[in-house]
Design a protein around this nucleic acid. Structure first.
Lengths: 213, 213
DNA sequence: CACAAGGCTTATGTATACACAGCTGCCAGC
DNA sequence: GCTGGCAGCTGTGTATACATAAGCCTTGTG
């Protein structure tokens, strides 16, 4: 693995997991020494982070970790609803019914995973990831898939703000199952509606658990 | 201006204007010598191009200019319709009516620019750019604006394939005026519908002028 | 005492040198 | 004659040295 890839992955994780707070300046020499690499690969890593929007160049004063506020969350979910709603509709039109039927069945059994301890919960996150991947593959649109991928980076960052309690996860699993069912049924409007519903509830939950802080 | 910015702009233009054909390998030494800079800033430029999707790394064989096919055009417009439709709707909700009313009036007088010679036609393109910028500003959503910006790069590339004859431009100006009018009227659904109509006609025109080739 | 100017420090931007990996072409052996 | 291996070369990946610009601190003057 290239040193620049390693640096990129490390910094990306540090930002997503909130180990690097928004506003932190990432000086080149400091970070290159911390990661044990030279400045050249580190600069490439910072370029990629900036292109993704996780950092911004602070005009000759290095790059700083981008801030993410409550207004950003609203904007983020506005775009997310647009993209994922369209993706769900396209998946319903073009996807393989059997694939999503299987995912629906798995999602209906997800509460068993959620109520369990952490390792099982990890399986649940993997299941949701497989649903996302199945939609990505079903839409047959690389540009839309790419837009959703770049959006998900910011979403993971937001998600860390909200506590994923078992109650919300169980409800989310049911909502995901509804999306998979609509796609399997080949009903675009229903798939889009189920996605809209899921995202609105997801946003409400994030804001409800975050604002009290 | 930094050397890496200059290299990025030069390569980006070369790709967009089809001076660098898809599939062309951009060797680092070759390009750095051509642009009169060192490899380091050139590499940063290539990183940014790859992040935008204009180039892809060919696994140790340098980066190659991304291909763009007819299927890509369909995918591109699918995403474009999703994003710009939503943007037009948001602009109708949140935008300043007077701004878009002014743009509509200018667009209604645009045929005079189009029928003229090239310098005046350039003014028309500037007018359309101002409409895009006004929508970007009106939506108050930086993530959506960013997604549209990254999409426009690919669109300009596609547009170079189609001959912009005066007839199509006149029709496009009327369609743009309809969008501006709907936004000024504060009617989100109408704005989205007008955008959908415009993009479908635009796509039809591109495909009609390109496929015969 | 306050403000401005100048120099120093520290950061990024750039260039170049070196290391390593992958490919290609040639040569030798079967 | 064909195939496999080796060597050389080309090109990327990395490190480091140097240039340059900007910001801050210090000092001098009003």
């Amino acid at each position: 693995m290239r040193a620049s890839d390693k640096a990129y992955a490390a910094l990306r994780d540090d930002i997503i997991e909130w180990r690097l707070a928004p506003g932190t300046v990432l000086a080149e020499v400091e970070q290159s020494e911390r990661l044990g690499i030279s400045r050249t690969p580190l600069r490439e890593a910072l370029s990629r982070l900036t292109a993704e929007g996780l950092t911004t160049t602070a005009g000759g004063r290095g790059v700083v970790v981008t801030d993410i506020s409550l207004e950003d969350i609203d904007e983020l979910f506005e775009l997310r609803e647009t993209l994922e709603g369209k993706a769900a509709a396209l998946a319903a039109e073009r996807g393989d019914a059997a694939t999503f039927e299987r995912l629906r069945n798995e999602l209906c059994q997800a509460p068993a995973l959620i109520s369990g301890e952490d390792p099982a919960r990890h399986d649940y996150y993997g299941l949701v990831g497989r649903l996302d991947a199945a939609i990505d593959a079903a839409i047959h649109n690389s540009y839309l898939a790419q837009a959703m991928r770049s959006l998900r980076v910011h979403l993971v960052r937001v998600r860390r703000l909200a506590a994923d309690d078992a109650e919300r996860l169980t409800a989310a699993a049911a909502e995901h199952a509804a999306i998979a069912e609509a796609i399997a049924a080949g009903n675009p409007r229903l798939a889009e509606a189920a996605t809209t519903l899921h995202l609105h509830r997801s946003l409400s939950h994030v804001k409800a658990t975050h604002t009290p802080q």
